[in-house]
Nucleic acid binder design. Structure first.
Lengths: 166, 166
DNA sequence: TATTGTTATACTCTATAACTATA
DNA sequence: TATAGTTATAGAGTATAACAATA
């Protein structure tokens, strides 16, 4: 009558629990470091990092929102906050008057630079410290496979179908 | 003069990015499923799951807070919310009048049961679907190693030293 | 009409500090 | 005094819906 309950093997269960624990501890550590050193939330750091990586240090609001998976109003909120701190500027696009272009400032790059060493340190400590080179390679391969798979098929289970309808 | 900047190898960088992406997508999917099917936040699910696992389905507030790494006021807030929904009860401990014992109700177990299949489904879809049995074993081993290492040494970098002073 | 972005608003979550009561 | 828990409060973050401006 009903579908059989889905199951996880003991190994899968162990992998899931350990994975969850590690990612949670890593995330907490990274968030604390960003807050303490740069007064940045994780989302704000992601936004700055994206802008820092962009060729001219700027992006449209919509493209930023898509990258971070975020509601547009949520992005407006964060962009305002970053602008008030002088870490980004916002201005209209020359090409499309509807668009707002967000650009990282020198101050923004300074904060990014200030935060970076500790960020890497936290990742080393909470993820790589106890792993061999082979382990790291393995991890890169397996995680790369999963993320590639997830990108390939927007998982249709557990919810709706669209990627980010907003 | 200054310490050299810490670095990540290309492989480490790849592993870190992929790991972060997977854990973020998995977390989002799980949270959405819990919300849609059981109207539970992730923290609430963790609390219920812990109570469900406890021998007599109950725990002291403090022990619960320790397990989930949470401020006590935050736990009070969530426990009240769960109590209002009839998923847990709260009462004084017979042994220590200061303590509050939280116990899962039959309704709480029902919600847990209702939410569980989809939870497992989400984990399968977002983590294991594209992995071989060997990959899963590898992942379990490596993640187990990292989490074991993190438990062994409360990482002293990037912050204070106490585990959870509250 | 469709798209870009902002605003108004409401809600959830979290933490800090002050407080009560037991030990 | 120290511990367990609650309350008051304040702040960050998020989302939805309504809106204005431009394409």
């Amino acid at each position: 009558m009903s579908t059989p309950p889905p199951r996880l093997s003991p190994t899968e269960l162990a992998a899931y629990f350990a994975f969850t624990e590690v990612s949670s501890l890593l995330r907490h550590a990274v968030e604390k470091q960003l807050r303490d050193v740069g007064k940045l939330s994780y989302v704000q750091f992601q936004l700055l990092a994206r802008l820092g990586d962009a060729p001219d240090g700027s992006q449209r609001m919509t493209d930023l929102a898509d990258g971070v998976v975020y509601s547009r109003s949520g992005l407006t909120y964060q962009a305002q906050s970053l602008e008030e701190r002088g870490l980004v500027t916002r201005g209209p696009s020359p090409e499309d008057e509807r668009s707002t272009i967000v650009a990282i400032t020198d101050e923004g790059r300074d904060v990014l630079a200030k935060v970076f060493p500790g960020h890497i340190e936290a990742v080393k400590t909470h993820l790589f410290e106890s792993l061999s080179a082979g382990d790291v390679e393995m991890l890169a391969r397996v995680m790369g496979q999963v993320s590639g798979h997830l990108r390939a098929e927007p998982p249709r289970s557990a919810g709706g179908r669209r990627r980010k309808s907003n």
